[in-house]
Nucleic acid binder design. Structure first.
Length: 597
RNA sequence: GGUCUCGUAGCUCAGUUGGAUAGAGCAACAGCCUUCUAAGCUGUGGGUCGUGGGUUCGAAUCCCGCCGGGAUCACCA
């Protein structure tokens, strides 16, 4: 039983003894005491005034006295207005720290064969252009969420659905064929995804030129868009692809393979990975079958032009198209097919989709459709919806060249980390390899932490210049603190100080030291909350609080130079466990913490 | 227009099962390196929590109206 619930039980007992009435546990609100007051936990007594029939101070005093006498965990208390601040005995903290120290996996619940199986879909790129800042947020959130779910006792399958078919890839293919002069990643030295992306842009440029010609010749804009030769050719190419034209399919394979090689590199740099990858080119026919089955069962209906629709007016939504008149599938159809394949492949208990909030409607519809089509898990799918990343100038627009490329961003972060490290003299005496490793770890730490510390549901602003900051609430600040603790522990070992001795229980601890233990102990609940809320940000902000507190402690107290052996030992143990929690917490964010920097 | 969502310091963000004087970082200014790593620590200034009502002992947090931003309502993915 943890300290908080133990005290809550005693409070209930106190009220029963003092006022002769039972209160249910939800009325007993224990929260952390605010910094400026003395104490660790605070009981809000307002809810009990009706029972005590006394004023707030009087009530708080009576409960306080009862607890002090009858609950050994409480050593003293103070009352301010209706708030009863309880001071927990130092012995209790010391015991708690000792318990945590003996648990190598503190706060982590590992999964076994009977644990729920969660599949989490993230990343899901198109194969016609490289990854950008928006994908970075998606990838980091998805990976972190998977780690958090694992730490909460789930089996997790990470999956990626690649949008490798459709008009978008035909546009790149066509432009490459017409204007590419047979360029390849090898011949140009370009990363494959960037090369293909280049021709996507070329297509757009040439297409626009053709539209202008046509409008100048008197056509209106919609006509021009439809009639531009390039667009007609791209559509023809898509038809040929669907008809399995050898030449087109070969080109499609080749260019996609370039893109995959490029993506693999980007994923590796970002530190994300997948257990199973699905391709839309392989799932869309499955969706079509499922839709036709639904049509046969009268769940769906067909219009005169033979297109197939779902009537969702009963759910407060509109009619939704699932198959075009020519029998080809749309986005929704593909998602239905992908879902079916996944459930055939794995005994999934829960499906999580990490997809931006601009698709909230899509997933609302998908859940209803899957349910209608007879998938019993349809209604319980989770759309982990995250906000967009905006730049200080506003939204990213690929046409206006204001997209932040993922690879460029990573390089820039690492370069800045390298330069800053050099300026601070952190790399003195390092080999080139070590220096490179530190620059990478710190640069990526800064990027990942910056993105993950923000509530995923909110839109966020990313200023490429100002965001590369290593002071304050940042990844490097946390990494730095960890490195410093490791250094202290190394020195302790060099001095022959034993680290794993039991702590003396008679020590007098400072307020800060007790607060730190309280914070360390909180880690367990924080991991649980993060899992429940699907929010890496909860972890990030918690670690920052812990680290900030530790840094203050570090400056106010000596550790190695402490004369009192028992106290020195306690402080080492405390530091070691702060490092342990930082390490576990940052691992849940996918951020490495170095032992020296 | 319908639906959803957001609005907290100059900037980026915390803070919501309703609790004390609304917190950090950045930016500005002032201190601290013969002292376990100064990517650090300490201090100063900076707020009608968009706005107006309501609910109650108590509202940034819950409810309603309004203002402002964003998303979505495709035979695109």
């Amino acid at each position: 039983m943890n300290i908080e619930s133990k005290i809550a039980a005693s409070v209930g007992e106190a009220i029963l003894k003092l006022y002769g009435q039972e209160v249910n546990s939800t009325q007993i609100q224990l929260s952390k005491t605010k910094k400026e007051f003395e104490g660790h936990l605070t009981l809000v007594v307002f809810p009990f005034l009706r029972i005590s029939k006394k004023n707030p101070e009087q009530t708080a005093l009576e409960i306080g006295h009862y607890l002090q006498e009858n609950e050994p965990v409480i050593s003293s208390f103070n009352v301010i207005k209706g708030f009863l601040n309880l001071v927990i005995d130092a012995k209790v903290w010391i015991e708690l720290l000792q318990t945590i120290a003996n648990d190598a996996q503190y706060g982590i619940v590992s999964a076994d064969d009977n644990s729920p199986l969660v599949m989490i879909e993230y990343s899901s790129p198109n194969t016609n252009k490289p990854l950008h800042l928006g994908h970075v947020r998606n990838n980091l959130l998805g990976f972190s969420l998977a780690e958090i779910l694992k730490a909460n006792g789930n089996r997790v399958v990470k999956t990626n659905i690649v949008n490798d078919r459709g008009i978008h890839i035909c546009k790149s293919m066509l432009a490459w064929k017409k204007y590419g002069n047979g360029e390849t990643p090898e011949s140009t030295g370009m990363k494959g995804d960037h090369l293909v992306g280049k021709y996507y842009v070329v297509f757009d440029k040439e297409y626009k030129a053709q539209i202008k010609e046509l409008t100048d010749a008197g056509q209106n804009i919609d006509e021009a868009k439809r009639n531009a030769p390039l667009m007609l050719e791209a559509q023809e190419m898509l038809r040929q692809w669907e008809a399995n034209d050898t030449e087109i399919v070969e080109m499609w394979r080749m260019m996609n393979s370039w893109v995959y090689a490029g993506f693999d590199e980007s994923y590796k740099k970002l530190g994300v990975d997948f257990d199973k990858i699905y391709y839309e080119s392989e799932t869309y026919l499955e969706g079509k079958n499922k839709v036709l089955e639904g049509l046969a069962n009268n769940v769906l209906y067909q219009k005169e032009d033979s297109s197939v629709w779902a009537d969702l007016t009963g759910d407060g939504l509109d009619h939704k198209l699932l198959l075009r008149g020519d029998g080809t599938s749309v986005y929704m159809t593909q998602d239905i097919g992908t879902a079916k394949l996944r459930y055939d492949d794995y005994p999934i208990n829960k499906m999580v989709y990490v997809v931006g909030n601009e698709q909230n409607y899509h997933f609302q519809v998908l859940a209803i459709l899957l349910d209608k089509l007879g998938f019993e898990w349809g209604k319980s799918l989770v759309h982990f919806s995250y906000g967009m990343v905006e730049l200080p100038e506003g939204k990213m627009k690929s046409r206006e060249g204001t997209v932040v490329d993922a690879d460029d961003l990573v390089d820039e972060m690492v370069n800045t980390a390298r330069e800053t490290s050099q300026e601070l003299g952190k790399l003195d005496g390092c080999t080139t390899e070590e220096a490179e490793k530190i620059a990478y770890t710190v640069g990526m730490g800064a990027l990942k932490y910056f993105i993950l510390k923000v509530d995923p549901r909110k839109n966020m602003t990313f200023n490429p210049k100002e965001s590369i900051d290593f002071n304050g609430n940042t990844g490097p600040f946390i990494q730095y603190t960890h490195a410093r603790i490791c250094s202290v522990l190394r020195k302790a070992e060099e001095q022959g100080i034993e680290l794993n001795k039991a702590i003396e229980k008679s020590l007098t601890l400072s307020e800060k030291e007790q607060t730190l233990i309280q914070l360390i102990a909180d880690f367990k609940n924080v991991v649980k909350d993060a899992g429940k809320e699907y929010s890496p940000a909860i972890i990030a902000n918690y670690i920052y609080d812990l680290v900030k507190e530790y840094n203050q402690f570090y400056h106010d107290h000596s550790i190695l130079k402490e004369e009192n052996e028992g106290l020195r030992h306690f402080r080492l143990m405390l530091s070691k466990n702060v490092a342990k929690v930082i390490n576990s917490g940052m691992a849940l964010l996918g951020i490495e913490v170095p032992e020296r920097m």
